[in-house]
Amino acid sequence: MIVRPLVAGRAEGELLLLSRPLSLWGGLDPEDGRITETTHPDVGRCVKGRLLAMEEARGSSSSASILVEAARCGTAPAAIILMRPDPILTIGSIVAELLYGVSIPIALVDARDWPQLRDAAWIMLDGGRLKAGG
């Protein structure tokens, strides 16, 4: 499918599709990459090296710092896939590259294509193109 790259880049890996938006700040432990928000349905799952997909980001503007800290610790997701653009995660991705040379591409998937992610386990993202596999 065609996606809109907010931060361009290449990534390939396992898809982690969240059933609800997550605030990285207060919701992710950058030391091990695990989701810690106790009321989140995906609590305990690990974002490290995965392509993290959620319809939108949520919560505090400190989420950018958590993404950069995760990049420093080597626990960041390989890429982030969203339905609605998010400036906070975008800036986190830009700074992760600037300070630590870690690339975390961010891509926007159209609402019509979003349901295709539900059946996917493996994702290949390359700039404006995304390939989802079972």
Partner: peptide
């Protein structure tokens, strides 16, 4: 500025730049 809250070494790396 919200970036003045210490989250870890990356907080300092950025402002020190």
């Amino acid at each position: 500025i919200d970036g003045c809250l210490y989250h870890g070494p990356s907080t300092i790396d950025f402002v020190r730049l």
